[in-house]
Design a protein around this nucleic acid. Structure first.
Lengths: 210, 210
DNA sequence: ACTTGATTGAAACAATTGTTTCAATCAAGT
DNA sequence: ACTTGATTGAAACAATTGTTTCAATCAAGT
C-alpha cells in the first residue's frame, strides 16, 4: 500500500496515526485528525469511507513503515545461532523501543497487540507472524533437542522481555531513577536480555538431558 | 477503602470496573455503567462527583481486591532465595493471568500500567512498588555480587516474562494452537520462567566473575 | 406521627460526536 | 476555451455524551 508523500490522503493517515496512538480509537475525533492533517472534515469520508477504515489504514501504514525502517540483518550460513538471537533481540528492541520520531508508529502497534481491532489480523499475518517464525527457527538451532512447545515458551520469554520496556514504560519510569532510565538503550537492553536468555537456554538443555 | 456489599455505591464501582476494563475510560459511558449497576444516572454524580473520580475509585478497588485475593506466601529465614523467586513468579502470574472471575480487575490494572491516568500514582505506591521491592530483595540474595542496576534489569526480565502472557494475550492466541494456549496455566508458566531466569542469573554471575 | 437528611428517579442541558450533503474549486485532457 | 471528473469547503444532521437540577421517596431518630 503505497502512500504518496504530501497528498491529502497521506497527511490524514499521518495525523490519524498520531492521534489514534495518543488517545485510542474512541477518544480520537475526526475533527482533530483533519485539522492536524490540514484537510477538510469530509476527507475522511471521501478517502476512507469512515473513521474505522481510516484507523485500519493507519495501523497498516505503521507496521509497514516500522519493518522498512528497521530491517533484520542478513545472516550467512556460518552465523552461529547465538549471534542470530542477539541480532534478533536488538532488532526487535529497536523496532519497538528505539528512540527517535515518529514515536506514534510504535505506540499504535502496541495498542493493537494489546487491544486488537479489525486491523490486528492483517498485522499479525504480515508483521508479527514472520518475526515469530524467525525466532522459532533460531531457537530450533539453539535447542534442537527441546520440544517445540517448550521452545515457544522461550520465544515468548524473549518477546516478553523486549516488549516490556515499552508496554509498561510509564511505570518503569516511576520505579527507577531518571538517569538509570535514560540509560535503557536498545544496545544495553539487548545485551542483557541475550545473556539472560542464553543462560536460561543452557539451563533448560542441561535439565532436559537428565 | 471499604466498600459495602450491596449498596448502590458498591454496585456502581463493580459495574464501572467491568465496563472501564472492557472499553477504556473514554468509550465507557456513565449511562451504561449505571444501567448495569442498577442505579440511577445521578448516582455517579452523587457518590463520586464525576466520571473521572469514579474511574479512580474502580482502579483502587481492583488492586486492593487483587492483592487481597492472591497474597504472597510467608517465608521463614531458611527458605532458599531460588524458592522465593519461584513463589514470587507464581504469585505474580496468578495475580495477573490466573483464571476465574472477576476478570475485569486484571484487565483494568493492565490498562492502568500501560496508559497511566490519575489513578496510577496511588497504584504504583500501594501495589506495584512493594512487589518490585520484594523482587529486588530476592535478587539481592541470589546475586549479591552484581550491581543493583543490573539486578533491576533482571527484575524487569522477570516481570516482563510474566506480564507478557496477559498484555499481548490476543496475539499469543493467534500464534499458538488453541490446545497449546489452553495449557498456559500459572503453574506451568511459572516453572518455565523460574528455570529460564535462574539459568540466566547463573550465566550473569559466571560472566561477572571473570 | 413527625422531622430530617440521605438517596433516588426522571427530565433537561449544553456540548460534542461521526457522517452526509452539495455547491465551489481545481487539474488535466481535448 | 471547454469539458469532465476528482477534490475540497462549509454547513447541517441526528445521535450521544457527561453533567445538573429538583421533586419524589426512603430510612432512621425522636
Amino acid at each position: 500500500m503505497l502512500v504518496e508523500q504530501d497528498s491529502t490522503r497521506a497527511r490524514v493517515i499521518e495525523a490519524a496515526g498520531r492521534i489514534f496512538a495518543a488517545k485510542g480509537f474512541e477518544a480520537a475525533t475526526v475533527r482533530e485528525i483533519c485539522q492536524r492533517g490540514k484537510a477538510n472534515l469530509a476527507a475522511v469520508n471521501y478517502y476512507f469511507g469512515d473513521k474505522r477504515r481510516l484507523y485500519i489504514a493507519a495501523v497498516e501504514y505503521a507496521y509497514c513503515k516500522r519493518a522498512e525502517q528497521v530491517p533484520f540483518p542478513h545472516w550467512d550460513e556460518h552465523t552461529p545461532p547465538s549471534d542470530k538471537l542477539s541480532d534478533f533481540i536488538l532488532t526487535m528492541l529497536t523496532r519497538m523501543i528505539g528512540k527517535g520520531p515518529p514515536e506514534w508508529e510504535r505506540e499504535l502497534l502496541l495498542r493493537e497487540v494489546a487491544r486488537p481491532s479489525d486491523a490486528c489480523q492483517a498485522m499479525v499475518h504480515d508483521f508479527i507472524r514472520p518475526q515469530f517464525a524467525m525466532l522459532e527457527a533460531i531457537l530450533a538451532e539453539l535447542m534442537p533437542q527441546i520440544a517445540p512447545e517448550r521452545r515457544r515458551l522461550v520465544a515468548f520469554s524473549v518477546i516478553g522481555q523486549c516488549l516490556h520496556y515499552r508496554v509498561v514504560q510509564p511505570v518503569i519510569e516511576m520505579l527507577v531513577s531518571a538517569e538509570e532510565f535514560a540509560g535503557y538503550e536498545p544496545k544495553l537492553l539487548a545485551n542483557h536480555i541475550t545473556e539472560l536468555t542464553l543462560g536460561g537456554i543452557e539451563q533448560i538443555v542441561r535439565h532436559a538431558k537428565r
